[in-house]
C-alpha cells in the first residue's frame, strides 16, 4: 500500500477522533463551514467563544505540525481569479447546503444521514465535472 494511502488513513482516523471528541464532550457537530459560517453571519453568537477556540486550534496546531513534520506544499493554483471564484463558491455553497466535507461527509455519513450522503454525492460529482471541464477541456486549472 503506498505511503500516501497509509498517511491518509492515519490522518483520517485523527480527523474522525476530533469529530468524535467534539460530539461526545461538547455535544457539537464538527462541521468546518458551520463553525466558521456562524461566526461570519452572526447565527453562532450564543456559542461564539467555543467556535473561536475551535478555529484557533485548527489554525495553530497545523502551524506547529509543519515545523516538525515536513515541508507541506498546498500546490494551490497561482491563478488568483480562479482562487477567488473557488472561495466564493465554497463559501456560498456550503452555507446554502448547510455543510461541507466535514459536516455532511464525516459527521453525516457516519450517522447514515440521507442528507449527508446526498450532499456528498453532489459535491463530489460537481467537483469531478468541474475538474474535467476546467482541466481537460478548457485547460485553465
Amino acid at each position: 500500500m503506498p505511503l500516501d494511502w497509509i498517511m491518509g488513513l492515519i490522518g483520517g482516523l485523527m480527523i474522525g477522533s476530533a469529530a468524535a471528541m467534539f460530539l461526545l464532550i461538547n455535544g457539537r457537530i464538527m462541521g468546518a463551514s458551520g463553525i466558521l459560517g456562524g461566526l461570519v453571519d452572526g447565527t453562532g453568537r450564543s456559542n461564539r467563544s467555543e467556535r473561536l477556540f475551535f478555529v484557533a486550534g485548527l489554525f495553530l496546531v497545523p502551524l506547529a505540525v509543519v515545523q516538525v513534520y515536513e515541508r507541506v506544499d498546498t500546490n494551490l493554483t497561482g491563478n488568483l481569479a480562479v482562487v477567488v471564484a473557488a472561495g466564493l463558491l465554497v463559501g456560498i455553497g456550503t452555507r446554502i447546503a448547510n455543510g461541507c466535507t466535514s459536516g455532511h461527509g464525516v459527521c453525516g455519513i457516519s450517522r447514515l444521514s440521507l442528507r449527508g450522503m446526498v450532499a456528498t454525492v453532489f459535491y463530489i460529482l460537481a467537483g469531478g465535472v468541474t475538474v474535467v471541464v476546467f482541466k481537460h477541456l478548457l485547460g485553465i486549472i
Partner: peptide, 23 residues
C-alpha cells in the same frame, strides 16, 4: 441541499480546497 452542494463542489474542484483545509 442540492444547489448548495453543487456550488460547493464546483469551488472545491476549481481550487482543491474546502473550509477545514483552508483554515
Amino acid at each position: 441541499l442540492i444547489v448548495g452542494s453543487t456550488l460547493f463542489g464546483m469551488g472545491w474542484g476549481l481550487a482543491g480546497l474546502c473550509p477545514g483545509p483552508a483554515v
